[in-house]
Simulated scan of single mutants.
Amino acid sequence: MVDDPLDNLDRRILHLLQIDARGASDTSIADETDVTGTTVHNRIQQLEDQGVILGYNPEISYERAGYPMRVLFICSIDLSKRSEMAVKALDVRGVVNVREMLAGEENLHVEVVAEGTSDVKESTEQLDELGLQIMSSNILAEEHIQPWNHFHQEMAGEDAETPSEIGSDEE
């Protein structure tokens, strides 16, 4: 891989997609970046082909969808089995996210959504059957997410816009 696989246009496109991937069209991104829609389309295709853009996923309110419980399990597994167990954990009932920690004893974080405690119990049992040692579990109250704005900040000579400023002139 090259030392710097992204140029300023790529960074700007990534930033705008993070803010609103669903609402961002090639044309609207082109308007923000002073290039053509075709250039934007080609750049997005290249970023997808290079594995920089892995997908486009909706942000879901599980509570409003009927799954009011979100539990974060902090697990431990031998580091040599961590990646294999992460993949297997994705098959456990209710698992929506698995994070591998680089090192340490608490090296696998598993997020589960559920309708109630009986579902959480079932997920707990399945994680245990995989051989994961559950160190702790925490009920998640809220999660706050924002786009990583450093793609845009690396652009020389431009003022950084906040997510609320971008697209604020929409009708």
Score class of each variant (00 low, 15 high):
130 L>W: 03
54 L>R: 15
138 N>W: 13
39 T>W: 00
150 H>Q: 12
89 A>K: 03
161 E>V: 11
125 E>V: 04
10 D>K: 03
117 T>K: 10
24 A>S: 14
11 R>H: 02
135 M>H: 04
161 E>C: 09
132 L>S: 02
113 V>S: 01
136 S>D: 15
143 E>P: 03
62 Y>F: 12
78 D>H: 10
22 R>N: 11
67 Y>M: 07
115 E>K: 14
107 N>P: 01
83 S>T: 09
17 L>S: 00
11 R>L: 05
6 L>G: 01
124 T>L: 05
41 H>N: 08
169 D>P: 07
26 D>A: 09
87 V>F: 13
128 D>G: 07
38 T>R: 12
129 E>K: 03
4 D>C: 09
145 I>H: 08
73 F>W: 05
101 M>I: 13
128 D>L: 04
44 I>K: 02
159 D>W: 08
136 S>C: 06
48 E>K: 10
17 L>E: 02
8 N>G: 08
103 A>H: 13
53 I>P: 01
124 T>K: 02
1 M>P: 14
47 L>R: 05
21 A>Q: 00
106 E>K: 15
134 I>Q: 03
120 V>D: 02
158 E>M: 11
119 D>C: 03
63 E>K: 09
30 A>Y: 02
91 D>R: 09
140 L>Q: 11
39 T>Y: 04
73 F>R: 00
22 R>G: 13
37 G>S: 06
52 V>T: 09
127 L>R: 05
27 T>S: 14
68 P>F: 09
58 P>R: 09
33 T>W: 06
134 I>S: 01
22 R>S: 11
163 P>D: 04
7 D>P: 02
165 E>V: 10
100 E>D: 08
111 E>Q: 15
27 T>C: 06
51 G>D: 07
15 H>R: 09
171 E>G: 13
1 M>L: 13
66 G>P: 08
81 K>D: 12
170 E>Y: 10
145 I>Y: 11
114 A>T: 05
3 D>E: 12
16 L>V: 02
9 L>E: 04
54 L>N: 08
37 G>D: 03
55 G>M: 05
80 S>H: 11
33 T>A: 06
46 Q>R: 15
12 R>A: 07
149 N>D: 14
149 N>T: 12
35 V>W: 00
143 E>H: 10
167 G>P: 04
